[in-house]
Structures are given as structure tokens and as C-alpha cells.
Design a protein around this nucleic acid. Structure first.
Lengths: 333, 333
DNA sequence: ACTCTCTATGAAATCGCTTTCAGGCATTGT
DNA sequence: ACAATGCCTGAAAGCGATTTCATAGAGAGT
């Protein structure tokens, strides 16, 4: 591998000059410039990124830590981050936390260890306190996406989950449903609690009392949704619609309904949450509350890049509003 | 940020000693060891990864370039790579090619630029020649996954797509189908051609002549599958089953069938390819040919790690066999 | 008791780049 | 024609680790 020294010798200039033509900004005479470029070409020279980073203390990359790499949910967040990063000539290093606090911590350490210039975190397993501590103790800018943490609110990009729960429930109310059940998410995750809260608010606004027996926990996973729906059906409490806390558990709920001989949406209407690819593939396709993952990723990237002075500081939306996507799983009651 | 020098001063030892306790291998007296560890703890010292990499010329990470980060298909490959990498204390840097040859090239350049110790490529847009050239001209080990390229065969981890096409088609033949259509994939991708070839072989083995009018192109995407199925139906040629080149286009095909009032599997049976999450969510759930993405990722990682001497050299499967996953989209004819 | 290993340690070179600093040379102004 | 100004350029000092090499001291062998 050729080094800058080889280039400088071949081009008969100093290493400083080579560095200057490489990085621009400083004027270099056209002749030397040409000589250097020729030498670079001739030697197939590529600057050593480690040396450069060591000297500049910048890596040219931002890191993203996501809870699950292969999830349909978070792919769009990454895509959003990447598009903005690329726009600014920065690269993206992605690492996965495997939905385990331990692995999240390890991956965080890796990224934080001065390998990237900024960090974007989308994690589930670590607690609010963990994250706040990380933000406080790290000297690189950290942005948290998909989660609102009061202590570091200005570094959070998140959805208004309460409004989302309300939106979903209101939609069912508007369609004439009155007995509306809820399959909730993993309650240790704030999103789940907020969505439930939104559901309660919507009911309240229509003067409908909250009924404990219409709520079952789906834990955000397909299996959980299936079990929750079975439990709901077994209770014998009557309902004509269900707001499910995410698309994945809605898939499970749909299966349980089908197994029980209930038709969707004729017998039971279903609203999901997230608008992941799952909602599109289900049959009937799922009416759901969309999270603008792509835009949220972009916002997070803007925040991060602005913090390190790569992107201009500009107004960035941090709290996103949910949007209802109507498909075929809701009928008028 | 504390440096090794700070630590060495606080611990009253040389930098070399600090480095030794950090990296192990070389004996250090227990007292100094303790002093160093205490100093590290006290200062919150973390070695600078750039400096270390510059000195050792190793990054401790392997790079993966995938065509699409957020695809359901490739998530499992990454997961497989990551699990093996982690097992060996290596980290993973992922970059995306966005299914464009230009971006693939750029991402490749980034990763190749001495940032990672080995490279695993899963790319669609770049040609066999591009890849062969990269492998030839790079001084880091490169493994290609999901693709067979003759010139660099020993660095490829791939599925026997021909066998897959045969498997799918044979399954339909075994179930009594004789008029079997095929919705093919993007023909510039070898996988698509091989699957078609397998389809032809299976037909031939049953003495059924290949019928051009039973083949339509679905280009591996949902839309394409839908259009292809419509085209097939419009031709008026009779068929009772279709082998679709991947799950995604099978989803489109299913939609077209449904729109045309055909029931699956009663009127038309369907077999997909890949066994992605899509196959699971479709209704009826899709019988499909499974690619062991996870294991393929693992194999690629083993190959890569062995090449840089991190993992022991052991026998690694490079050509994987497809497996038929039976679900609900095939009926006996 | 004396030489001969060995073992643990530190000093210093090195990795490949950026950046400061000082100076040479050509302009410009008077 | 001379001083002042600016523009380019090169030498050299980092950046923060690893690693080689030499050496001091401890232990072993006779």
C-alpha cells in the first residue's frame, strides 16, 4: 500500500503539499497539484483512514445503534439516517443491540469508542437512566430516536404515541364502534403506555368508561397478539373492534380471529400501529397508524450532524405526528 | 479524553506496560497490573481505536456491504454474519448499496479503504466482472454471499438456485399439477436464470414440454409479480399452479389472482422462493423454498475470519441446498 | 560464588496522516 | 529601488497507540 510519503517523493513535493491537494482549502500551485495527482494515480494511492482520523480526531462516520438490524420496523429509520448522512459526505456505521441490554451496552461501547463522530441510538432494552447516563458521560453528540426521555428531551426524536393511540381509537369510534378492545404492547416500553393512554383518552372523550376486561397484553410480538386475542375472545366480553398496539401483534390477533371463525372486518374491525410492511401484506390489509420512520431517521441525522458542525443548524422536527392509514381491516358498525 | 500516557504516569509505569496489560499475552507483574488497572478505572481511560488501528494495521471489524439494509431478505444474512463475528470479538460495519451500482461502488470504496479487516459483499447491481476485479485488486479478503461467480468461486457462499427451482416445481408435480406456470425474476441476476433452469429441468424430468406462454417476468418485485400474473391470466393459457421466483413477487401474484376472483390454493396453487417473512404473513401463507440466509451469513463470516486468521480454518459449506417449506398455498390437483 | 538464562520493564521508534510555523519568492506600493 | 504584503511551500511536531530492543535483576546450575 502506497503512503503519502511515496506520493510526495514521486511528485517531488513535501507530504504537506500532498495533504493539501488531498484536502483542499489551501491554495496549491497548479503544477504541483498536477504532479501530485499524477503520482496518486500512478501509485493507486488511497489515504489511510486510521492515520487521518488519528490526526484529525474525526472519523467521517456517524454510528447508529439499532435494537434489531433485520426488523422491518427499523429499516426505514436507518434508511432515513443514511440518506442525510450521505448527503453530507458522511458514512454510516450500524451496529445491532439484539434487543438485549447487555448487547446494547457492548455495541454502544464499541461505537462510542471514538470510532464515530456522533451517535444515533434506537434501543429498546436499555433504560431511560442508561441512556441519560450515556448522553451525559459521552463526549460525542448522541441522538435518541423513537423514544422520549425527559432528561434529554432536546436530543430525542420521537412519535407522539399518545396522539397515535387516540387517533386509532377515534377512527374506530367515528366508524360507529363503541365496544373497542385494546391489545397493548410491552408495558415497560413507554410507547406502549402512551398508546394505551391515548386509547383511554379517546374513549373518555366519547363518554365511554374504560373497561379493564377489554384490554389484553400482546407484548408487541405476533405470538403475544394471538394469545391476547384468544384471551379477549375467551372472556366472553363483547367487542366489535380492536386497537392493537403494533402491526406485528395485529398479525397474531388476526390469526386468532380467523381461527375463531370471526371475519375481519365484518365481525371485528382491527387497527394496528407502525405501518410496517406487515400491514401491507396481511389479508385483509391492515388499517394502521403510521409512524414516519424515514423522516424520523432523517431528523435524527440532521440533529447529529448539526451537533458536530457538519450540517447547518436548522429547525428540526423532533416530535412527529402519527397519521392514520386506512386499509381494509375496519368496517362501519 | 485520557490517553495511555496519562495512565502510565498515574500508574508510575511505562506506556509499554500499560499497553501490555491492555492487550495481554505478555506477562506483567501483579502489582503493576493492579496499578495500571486502577489508573485506567480512575481516569475512565478508553484506548483510542484509531491509534490502535494505525499501529496494528487491524481494525477489529469486518465490513458488510448489502444491497438493501432494510430488506427482509438480507436481514438474516447480516444477523448470521454478526453472530459469528461477535463470537470472535470482531465488530461489524454495515453499509448499504441501495441497489445501485454507483452507490455500491462508493460504499465498497469506503469499506475497502482500510477501515475493516475483511469484507463480505451481498450486492445485486454490480456485475460479476466488477466483483472479480474488486477481489483481485483489494488486499483484504473478500467474501461474496448470495451469488456464485466462477472466477472467484472459492470466495462465494451461495444457494443452489437450480436445485431450488427444481424443488419447487417438483413439489407441484408431485401434487398432481401438470400445467405449471412460472413467474420469473430479474433476468440479469443469475439466481433468476438458475431458478428458471431448475423449473425447466423438473418439467423435463416428467416429460412435460417447456411452454413459453406459461412464463412471465415478475422482476423479483411485488408489482412485477402482480403484472406477470395478470398477463398470465390474460393469455388464456390454462394452468393450475405457479412457481414464482421469489416471495415478494408471489405476494403480487396472489393479489392479482384474488382480484381475478381465483382462489388460492383451490383454483391456483402457488410456490414462492426465499422464505422471507412475507411468506409467513400472506394469506394463505405461502409454500416456498427456503434459503438458509442465516447460515449463509455465518458461513461467509467464517470464511472471512479464517482468511484474516481470526477464526480457525475449518470446512465451511459454500453451496447451500434449498429446503421446501410447506404452508397453505398449494393444493393437490 | 560466579556465570548463565529468563523475566519483567522502559525508552524510543513507528504507523500515516494533518497542521503549525517559519521562510522564500514574487508582487505591490511609494 | 526598497520595504511591505501575500502566497506557496517544506520541515517538523504532533495524534495515541503498539512493538522492538536493550537491560536490570532474579533464579538456576555447577
Amino acid at each position: 500500500m502506497a503512503t503519502i510519503k511515496d506520493v510526495s517523493q514521486l511528485a517531488q513535493v513535501s507530504q504537506a503539499t500532498v495533504s493539501r491537494v488531498l484536502n483542499g482549502g489551501v491554495p496549491v500551485s497548479p503544477e504541483k497539484q498536477a504532479a501530485v495527482l499524477a503520482a496518486i494515480e500512478r501509485l493507486g494511492y488511497r489515504p489511510n483512514a486510521f492515520a487521518r482520523s488519528l490526526a484529525t480526531n474525526r472519523s467521517g462516520a456517524i454510528g447508529a445503534l439499532v435494537s434489531e438490524l433485520s426488523s422491518a420496523v427499523y429499516g426505514d429509520i436507518i434508511r432515513g439516517i443514511e440518506s442525510v448522512a450521505e448527503e453530507h459526505g458522511m458514512h454510516l456505521v450500524v451496529s445491532s443491540g439484539h434487543a438485549s441490554a447487555e448487547t446494547e451496552r457492548r455495541s454502544y461501547d464499541f461505537l462510542e469508542q471514538r470510532r464515530t463522530d456522533a451517535l444515533i441510538l434506537q434501543v429498546d432494552a436499555s433504560t431511560d437512566e442508561d441512556l441519560s447516563r450515556w448522553v451525559a458521560s459521552s463526549d460525542l453528540p448522541i441522538v435518541v430516536v423513537g423514544r422520549y426521555i425527559e432528561a434529554i428531551a432536546e436530543r430525542c426524536v420521537y412519535l407522539d404515541n399518545g396522539a397515535g393511540g387516540e387517533l386509532a381509537t377515534r377512527h374506530l369510534l367515528d366508524r360507529g364502534h363503541r365496544r373497542i378492545a385494546h391489545i397493548s404492547g410491552l408495558m415497560r416500553i413507554p410507547d406502549a403506555r402512551d398508546r394505551l393512554e391515548g386509547y383511554r383518552r379517546a374513549l373518555a372523550s366519547h363518554g365511554i368508561p374504560f373497561d379493564e376486561s377489554l384490554v389484553a397484553n400482546g407484548a408487541f410480538v405476533e405470538d403475544g397478539g394471538e394469545r391476547a386475542m384468544r384471551s379477549l375472545l375467551a372472556r366472553g366480553t363483547d367487542f366489535s373492534a380492536v386497537f392493537v398496539a403494533n402491526d406485528q401483534s395485529a398479525a397474531g390477533a388476526l390469526k386468532a380471529l380467523r381461527d375463531a371463525g370471526k371475519r375481519v372486518p365484518e365481525d371485528v374491525s382491527l387497527v394496528g400501529f407502525d405501518d410496517t410492511i406487515v400491514a401491507h401484506y396481511l389479508y385483509p390489509s391492515l388499517t394502521t397508524v403510521r409512524q414516519p420512520f424515514d423522516e424520523m431517521g432523517q431528523a435524527a441525522a440532521w440533529l447529529a450532524l448539526a451537533a458536530i458542525g457538519v450540517a447547518e443548524r436548522r429547525e428540526v422536527t423532533r416530535r412527529f405526528e402519527p397519521v392514520l392509514i386506512e386499509r381494509d381491516s375496519v368496517a362501519t358498525h
